[in-house]
């Protein structure tokens, strides 16, 4: 159907970048400033989609809700579908809530050969969950990761913004106990580190959650 030269039928399939009435924009003032700084690195606003989703993941407490995706679309002036397409493509964006610590065990070639599946089974047993599940207390989510590219120190487990190398069935239980006590390595802190890394001058300001001395 064509009215006034506009194909209204085709337009009806486009999700406009307009927030739903019940949405409340949740980005803090600081987050908006960070987003605008990152947008200025690119020739167009839309290009900041990945960093914007990282900011959203942090601001919305570790995972992306539909409202978070709509907020990113509104702030970038693009459509909700487009942002949703990006958010669903990349594995590090959490579309569901994760535990306070997300254990990602690398089980790709070298790690698999060096015993990653034994680590997975030991963790499954210790946490009483299977791969992809979250413990009842919301403390841990366990998943299998594709190559984390630290093959020299197989098996590697990524938790938040940190790689734990040389994990074996015997020392993985210590890791779990350590993490239980730790305030660090949460999904929101991972997102925070990734945003800070993309902000020029962040290292001079002390750098948020991530301290370079820890490397």
């Amino acid at each position: 159907m064509i009215q006034n030269g506009i194909n209204t039928l085709a337009d009806s399939y486009i999700t406009h970048p307009v927030a739903q009435p019940e949405d409340k924009m949740q980005f803090s003032e600081e987050a908006v400033a960070e987003l605008e700084e990152i947008i200025s690195h690119y020739p167009e606003r839309k290009a900041a989609c990945l960093p914007a989703l990282w900011i959203a993941q942090r601001e919305y407490g570790g995972h992306l809700t539909p409202a978070a995706i709509r907020e990113v679309a509104t702030r970038l002036g693009t459509s909700q579908t487009e942002v949703e397409g990006v958010a669903t493509f990349y594995t590090m964006y959490n579309l569901r809530p994760r535990g306070r610590h997300h254990l990602e065990v690398c089980t790709c070639l070298t790690c698999a050969v060096m015993g990653a599946y034994d680590v997975v089974h030991a963790l499954e047993h210790a946490l009483d969950i299977s791969i992809g599940e979250t413990t009842a207390d919301g403390e841990f989510t366990l998943s299998e990761a594709e190559c984390l590219n630290y093959c020299g120190n197989a098996t590697v487990v990524q938790v938040g913004d940190h790689y734990f190398p040389d994990i074996s069935p015997s020392n993985c239980l210590n890791l779990v106990e350590e993490l239980r006590k730790s305030e660090k390595y949460t999904p929101a802190l991972l997102a925070d580190s990734l945003v800070k890394i993309q902000t020029p001058g962040a290292s001079l300001k002390g750098g948020g959650s991530f301290k370079a001395e820890e490397i």
């Binding site: 790689y163 890394i197 020029p200 962040a202 290292s203 750098g207 991530f210 490397i215």
Partner: peptide, 14 residues
Amino acid sequence: EYVEPAWQLRKAID
């Protein structure tokens, strides 16, 4: 996933 290397690069670029 490369948070630690990227953070070093951030420092170096600054």
